[in-house]
């Protein structure tokens, strides 16, 4: 690394800032274009159906496995504390509260961004660098209605539904670990969940999952559609896409948490 003069440093900051502004602006415009196509709905039915299958069914196994392990890890980590205070009746509440409100949406969002978001960017990016997007335009097919809106619907809907599935499996994983590790019976675990957990906890997490879904869909589509530079460019786009999704997930989570309190 050569030494940086103050002016050079400043221009670097400026360049980085402009690049981020360009990406954020591009995503905002993309979100607007997609939403405009939704009222009234203008989209390709077959492509939507195909994407719902691809996004939902293909990522279900990984979501289930991750959620199960996450539930187990939470119980392991709180195990010492529960045993220390003899608060076995609170284990179900603690696990469910953390899962429904925070850990479920975040872990499933991260996995979803890796599995589906990265795949989406790679697919669109490949189409872009092999001129397939231009070919669609040449055939008078709007890439937004044909490619992006079906993916947007599939990602947002499936993120929402898979979070419900994931929450449930995480609780099952947690309950099972509680029994093996701490001897907390599943019925005690369940009654603790039912007694202390409100519907608000569930909806709070599902609202988060919904916004994460929108973020992943828009971010991954944006980076896919702005890919350039062959195979190397596709790799770079996927990298940017997953990183931006992860940052957005945590930032959005913070603001939703602090506003809803």
């Amino acid at each position: 690394m050569q030494a940086l003069s103050p002016s050079k440093l400043l221009s670097r900051f400026g360049a980085a800032f402009m690049a981020i502004a360009l990406d954020v602006g591009g995503m905002a415009v993309l979100l607007y274009q997609i939403l405009r196509c939704l009222v009234p709905p203008r989209l390709d039915g077959m492509e939507t159906w195909r994407n719902l299958y691809k996004v939902g069914v293909k990522s279900a196994p990984i979501v289930v496995v991750t959620a199960m392990l996450t539930g187990a890890i939470m119980v392991i980590q709180s195990g010492a504390l529960v045993a220390q205070f003899d608060a076995f009746g609170l284990l179900g509440w603690g696990a469910a509260f953390a899962t429904l409100r925070e850990v479920g949406p975040i872990m499933i969002g991260l996995m979803f961004s890796g599995r589906v978001g990265a795949n989406n960017t790679a697919e669109l990016g490949t189409m872009k660098v092999t001129d397939q997007i231009d070919a669609l335009r040449a055939l008078a097919i709007d890439p937004i209605t044909y490619l992006l809106v079906p993916r947007f619907i599939a990602i947002v809907l499936m993120m929402f539904l898979l979070t419900i599935v994931g929450d449930l499996t995480a609780l099952v994983g947690g309950a099972y670990t509680g029994q093996v590790l701490l001897g907390v019976s599943p019925s005690l675990f369940a009654s603790s969940v039912i007694e202390y957990i409100t519907l608000e906890d569930l909806f709070n997490g599902l609202f988060k999952a919904f916004t994460f879904g929108i973020a992943i869909a828009v971010v991954s589509s944006h980076y896919g559609m702005t890919t350039s530079g062959g195979a190397v460019g596709v790799g770079r786009s996927v990298n940017n896409s997953v990183v931006a999704s992860a940052v957005l997930i945590f930032v959005l989570d913070y603001f939703i948490t602090s506003i809803l309190h």
């Binding site: 996995m111 890796g114 990265a118 790679a122 697919e123 990016g125 195979a231 790799g235 996927v238």
Partner: peptide, 14 residues
């Protein structure tokens, strides 16, 4: 080609 790189990156992160 570029498709292979896309698949590889997705596989890596998952």
């Amino acid at each position: 080609g570029s498709e292979g790189v896309g698949t590889a990156t997705t596989m890596a992160v998952v």
